[in-house]
Amino acid sequence: MTLVEILHPSCALFLDFDGTMVDIAPQPSAVHVPQPLIGVLQDARDYLQGALAVITGRPIAQIDDFLHPLQLPVAGVHGAERRGRDGQLHLLNAQPLDHVEEAACLLAAQNPGLLVENKRGSLALHYRQRPDLEQLCLQTMEKAVDESPGVTLLRGKMVMEAKPCGASKGNAIEAFLEEQPFAGRRPVFIGDDVTDEAGFHAVQRLGGLGIKVGEGATCATQRLADPLALRQELEAALAARFIRTT
């Protein structure tokens, strides 16, 4: 089943960012956003009457910078922060991450190539440049998180992230679905990482559709090859709307 068949004005579309809309870069700041993507997202938002949101591990401010001048509803930091269509910002209570930050920064100082990213409400340790240190990073982060009440560890592609226990992409999608213009629509979530599995579970439990981008085990029922395939299918789906409505 393609997005031409799936995308319909009655849908609510939720999109992850890195590895889904854009290719993953060696450093988080080095992501390249193909210029046509912004126009495609704007057209998709208009077609869905505003029911399009970004669900990401990045902070909202970074998504706004990457997609400027387009500003969409966004759940950032895996749902620790969320901005609705009305512009209202919702924040989960952030748990103290001082102990996790201290442990991660000490490890990074001792091992060049590791990158610590401090977000509002979470702390990420990237090891893309040092995949040989995966087990050491895991042991360090697990120990620090275990010693930090109210914090859980989320593993992604070459990254480990300490975040509030209540933050998940599934919870963020469900919160959007209680608000206009998302309420009452069939949810479709497209993501690429293990961090997106909670979102797939949520939309499929609610009668929607999860679409996995790339390889790897998943509970999603549909799959796309890569971010380029997603962008091409979105373009094709939006082009086909003119045929379906005439």
Rank of each mutant, 00 (worst) to 15 (best):
P28H: 06
E179P: 07
P112L: 05
D193L: 07
V74E: 02
A236Q: 15
S10H: 14
L106N: 13
A108Q: 03
A225Q: 14
L177Y: 04
T56K: 02
A75H: 02
A12D: 00
E179G: 07
H126V: 02
E179Y: 09
C11N: 14
V31R: 00
I211A: 01
Q135L: 12
H78L: 05
G19V: 02
G216P: 11
L136I: 04
C105D: 08
K157F: 03
G150L: 11
T221W: 03
P34I: 06
E142G: 03
L3A: 05
Q129K: 13
R128V: 06
T152W: 08
H8A: 09
L107W: 06
L41M: 12
A75F: 07
L138K: 09
A225K: 11
F14I: 02
V54S: 02
I55A: 03
G191Q: 01
L230H: 05
L7Q: 04
D196C: 10
N171E: 14
A94S: 14
V145K: 01
N93T: 14
R58T: 00
H68S: 15
G19N: 04
D86N: 15
L37W: 11
A25G: 13
A25P: 11
A225T: 10
D23M: 06
G57P: 06
F66G: 01
E161Q: 12
G84E: 05
P227Q: 07
L7C: 12
F17D: 02
A183F: 09
V40R: 14
L72I: 09
C165N: 09
I190F: 13
K163V: 05
P187D: 06
G214R: 04
L228D: 13
G76Q: 03
E102D: 13
A53F: 04
G184V: 04
I63K: 02
G210Y: 00
Q62A: 12
C105R: 15
V213G: 02
N171H: 14
A108S: 11
A220R: 00
P59M: 12
D226E: 12
I211S: 02
V31L: 04
P227W: 08
D196N: 10
V203K: 08
D46T: 14
V100L: 11
L206R: 15
L115N: 00
R231T: 04
